[in-house]
């Protein structure tokens, strides 16, 4: 088992954002987390790589308790793709891709560059390797951000609303890259509002509301035969 989340609680001040989350994630699962804004989806995702420190409860990664020490030792094996891309503004595309794997001694500079170029060809941005992020469109930035996380040979990639900041005409190119990546043996957890994408991508769908997991199951069950009122309501509201 890759992740085991037990009785996870996260509070910001007096507000409970996550209330007693229990969750198990197997290797190679493709999970989509849906739910209204403020339901705690992103916070749950950010707890899975300790960008947020759980208030109580515990998270196990490969059976070991995930703390700062463990997180440090797995160096970039839990990748993340952010809503606002977060490419490094001061570095060119190629440097964005090669910086971390080289500094972490995952590969030599030459290996990193040739690997980065392979990925850039795959996303048809080979002519952008010396561009700075400010010269890329939102869709291009997000695709570079996705291959940047792939450069680290991750076991998991967490996607935090990867298309929410994009202009509508760029959403497709990013989602289809995520689908392409999903053929690899990488566990992927995606917080999104794109239900059509979820239909195609997910092996499991999790529905959250008010800091709790309300319902989870395969996409067939979740989208065609939702059991809870809240999920039924949520689905009818956004379709």
């Amino acid at each position: 088992m890759l992740y085991q989340v037990k009785k996870l609680v996260k509070k910001f001040g007096n507000t409970s954002v996550l209330k007693n989350i229990n969750l198990e994630i197997e290797e190679n699962e493709k999970i989509v987390i849906i739910g209204p804004s403020g339901s705690g989806k992103s916070t749950l995702l950010r707890c899975l790589n300790l960008l947020e420190k759980p208030t109580s409860g515990s998270i196990y990664y490969h059976g070991h308790r995930l703390d700062d020490k463990l997180y440090k030792s797995i160096q970039g094996k839990i990748g993340m793709v952010f809503q606002n891309y977060q490419l490094f503004d001061n570095l060119t595309v190629i440097d964005n891709l090669t910086l971390a794997p080289v500094l972490n001694k995952l590969m030599s500079k030459e290996e990193a560059i040739s690997k980065a170029r392979r990925y850039l060809r795959q996303i048809h941005l080979e002519d952008k390797e010396n561009s700075y992020p400010m010269d890329l469109s939102g869709g291009q930035k997000q695709r570079v951000a996705i291959i940047r996380s792939l450069m680290m040979n991750p076991e998991v990639i967490l996607f935090d609303e990867p298309t929410s900041a994009l202009d509508p005409e760029m959403i497709g190119e990013v989602l289809s890259l995520i689908l392409e990546v999903s053929r690899e043996k990488i566990t992927m957890i995606v917080v999104t509002h794109e239900l059509n994408f979820a239909q195609e991508f997910a092996t499991r769908v999790i529905f959250m509301d008010h800091g709790k997991i309300i319902e989870e199951g395969d996409k067939e069950q979740m989208f065609k035969h939702p059991r809870t009122n809240r999920l039924q309501q949520f689905l009818s509201n956004i379709q």
């Binding site: 970039g76 977060q86 503004d89 971390a100």
Partner: peptide, 25 residues
């Protein structure tokens, strides 16, 4: 602060993040 977060998720420690990302910007 997302720049630091991105750097952290790529396995870079404080000093490397400072040296290569935060300080130059």
């Amino acid at each position: 602060k997302g720049q630091r977060e991105a750097s952290k998720t790529l396995g870079l420690n404080y000093l490397k993040t400072m040296r290569y990302i935060i300080f130059p910007q």
